[in-house]
């Protein structure tokens, strides 16, 4: 236990010294970037205090970042700037001459209703705001998914199963079209809930699983490339920009 503790102090000392040296040699921006990168990567070995430091810093700072952005980029221009522009004119003069929109009282009231959650007695009122939010999500998405995912995808899957080109019958394109056609139909059969996957229907469902597995395998293999290039980018930063080992 003691040896472990000693080792961790030694590592801490090395990290601190390296950090100071790096700032002196390479400047603040590159050094902070390099050390935070190393701290995150250290998680691959195991959880450790350096990762914890980076993680906790990231959480606190980013939470405040999005809150500030939400306040200045959404709340001020879209709520106060529309509800009663003079109210925010001292901070954002550009909004001063906007016309007032009384309808913006709706989100204001709903926002306050949601905050009633903080009161133990009137907390149930916050459900009204939740009901509004969930109703909005349900109503908006119903038609949008119907349009772009249901109707449009059916439209895309409609074609001739006998393809010709300039030199006559095109076997390759015909096979491809037949496979897309069969793949979509079998994939849909797989998703059937209320019919037992038996007999011919079961064969369709099994083909559907095969199509889905090819889809997943292919997408997985395809994405590997993009993920590797992210790591290459980081390594170029560490070994090139920071350590200067890549020319």
């Amino acid at each position: 236990m003691n040896a472990g503790k000693l080792l961790s102090y030694i590592i801490l000392a090395i990290v601190v010294i390296a950090f100071v040296v790096s700032i002196a040699l390479k400047g603040f921006l590159v050094t902070v970037g390099a050390f935070l990168t190393l701290f995150i990567f250290s998680f691959l070995y195991k959880d450790n205090p350096y990762y914890k430091f980076a993680e906790h810093l990231f959480v606190g700072a980013s939470a405040a970042y999005w809150m500030s952005m939400g306040f200045w980029k959404t709340m001020v221009p879209n709520l106060f700037g529309k509800l009663y522009p003079p109210m925010v004119a001292w901070a954002v003069p550009a909004l001063k001459n906007n016309p007032a929109q009384p309808l913006m009282l709706i989100p204001l009231v709903l926002g306050i209703l949601l905050l009633m959650r903080l009161s133990s007695k009137a907390g149930w009122i916050s459900r009204w705001a939740l009901a509004f939010i969930v109703g909005t999500t349900a109503g908006l998405n119903l038609v949008r998914y119907l349009r772009s995912d249901f109707i449009q995808q059916i439209n895309n899957t409609v074609f001739s199963l006998y393809v010709t080109n300039a030199s006559g019958f095109d076997l390759g394109a015909t096979i491809s079209n037949v496979i897309i056609f069969g793949g979509v139909i079998c994939g849909l059969i797989y998703f059937f809930f209320s019919k037992e996957h038996k007999g011919a229907f079961g064969a369709g469902a099994r083909t559907g699983i095969i199509v889905l597995m090819i889809t997943f395998g292919a997408s997985f293999g395809y994405t590997v490339m993009a993920r590797i290039s992210l790591l290459v980018g980081r390594m170029q930063f560490l070994f090139g920009d920071w350590l200067g080992m890549i020319r």
Binding site: T157, F159, L161, F181, I189, F193, S194
Partner: peptide
């Protein structure tokens, strides 16, 4: 409601089969 969803799938399949058949006949 899940059975209702299956009706939607039947509609999709019928439309795809019917239209692909029509286009195939048209090109043949």
């Amino acid at each position: 409601s899940l059975k209702g969803q299956d009706v939607g799938k039947i509609i999709a399949m019928v439309v795809i089969v019917l239209l692909c058949a029509l286009f195939t006949v048209a090109s043949l």
